[in-house]
């Protein structure tokens, strides 16, 4: 692993005992199961828990596990986009003392943490855990286009076609890794493909 200091390091979600409210946003069934396991021993806190679930791999059972927690609200969404629209709407209504928990694949964490940041939420108020694919969200530095779920490097930019090396340099504001032309000094000469 690279030692580039901007690369995000995801943690583990752990309910904060004295938080006034818990706000969970998770994507995918493995994330849903993990959230259910993490919160079930904290039954007394569940009255102040709101859970948003992106059921992106069509797993109703995992959704039921979340519903069974008995949280104040447990809401399901069909896609990442609809999940994050709701996440933004809820963020605007949150108050001081709330703790945010994000759990899901890398590209989901990339985008959701950037949304929280753009709403003035400090990164310390957001707990994260990688649960699912580690495919990344990438910005092409040349055309500025965002590419979702990039699983390997190099990759051709889906917007401008330039061959990109995905670097570990990461922008929390954009919620994306940097993609930069890999063959500028030797056109067409691409290094072997590497998965993340």
């Amino acid at each position: 692993m690279s030692d580039i200091k901007s690369r995000p390091i995801w943690g583990r979600i752990r309910p904060v005992a004295h938080a006034a409210r818990h706000f969970v946003c998770c994507e995918g069934s493995s994330a849903a199961r993990h959230v259910a396991e993490t919160f079930s021993p904290n039954a007394e806190a569940l009255k102040q828990v709101t859970i948003l679930y992106g059921n992106t791999d069509r797993n109703e059972e995992a959704g039921h596990t979340l519903d069974a927690l008995g949280a104040e609200a447990s809401l399901h969404y069909p896609t990442r986009q609809t999940l994050l629209i709701s996440f933004k709407a809820h963020l605007k209504r949150l108050h001081m003392g709330a703790q945010i928990y994000l759990c899901g694949p890398e590209a989901f964490l990339n985008e959701a943490t950037a949304i929280a940041e753009s709403h003035g939420v400090l990164k310390e108020a957001v707990q994260t855990e990688l649960c699912g694919a580690n495919a990344r969200r990438v910005q092409c530095v040349h055309c500025k286009g965002l590419i979702e779920n990039v699983a390997y490097t190099p990759i051709a930019c889906e917007h401008c076609g330039v061959n990109l090396m995905v670097r570990d340099h990461y922008s929390r504001r954009l919620g994306a890794f940097m993609g930069v032309c890999v063959d500028a000094e030797a056109p067409g000469d691409l290094p072997a493909r590497e998965s993340f």
Partner: peptide, 10 residues
């Protein structure tokens, strides 16, 4: 938007 340590990351 990066902090001092992040933008010198590379």
């Amino acid at each position: 938007g990066m902090n001092f340590i992040e933008w010198h990351g590379p």
